[in-house]
Amino acid sequence: MLKALKLEPQHCTGCMQCEMACSYENEGVFNPAKSRIKVFTFHEAGRFAPYTCTQCEEAWCMHACPVEAITLNAQTGAKEVADAVCVGCKVCTIACPFGTVNYNQATGKVIKCDLCGGDPWCAKACPTGAITWTDADQTGFQRMYAWAQQSPAGEASYILPQKKDPAAYGPSA
């Protein structure tokens, strides 16, 4: 069963645990500047939103790459960058409509989410359930459920962090 990262901005508090987990898994340091997932803050609206690669099926980045450095991992569905092949031309960063492939000036290669080989650290680190790792075919089911339930407007569930299984907190090496 293919899984996908499900992002629910309404639960995000802007704590950056996902960015630290991502950068630590990929770079070996706690460094939001090198995170493949980014949390954006909209001060005036009082909103936070995590954003990262959605692993498009017909991935623009993959098709655009002139040296075929970006390939499909059939196990996870991730489009992965092979550092040994990437020449740092940045065409993929232009091709991606969502901006989720970016150049890393420290290495001269591009970086993007690779789903951590099927065990994404960002989802494990998120304390509120704003980022979850879920059945790729059912990312909308919870929202459908909520509509089906017709919960009254104004209920404060968007303020309470959505707690998940505490055992799933934080990545452990």
Binding site: S23, Y24, E27, G28, V29, F30, N31, P32, A33, K34, P127, K163, P166, A167, Y169, G170, P171, S172, A173
Partner: peptide
């Protein structure tokens, strides 16, 4: 953009901080 590294024992640090987060939750 340099980040924070040089953790003495990374594996133990991730376990200890994960346990701490669980207690807070």
């Amino acid at each position: 953009t340099l980040g924070v590294g040089n953790i003495k024992d990374p594996a133990r640090f991730l376990t200890a901080t994960a346990q701490g987060k669980q207690v807070l939750a």
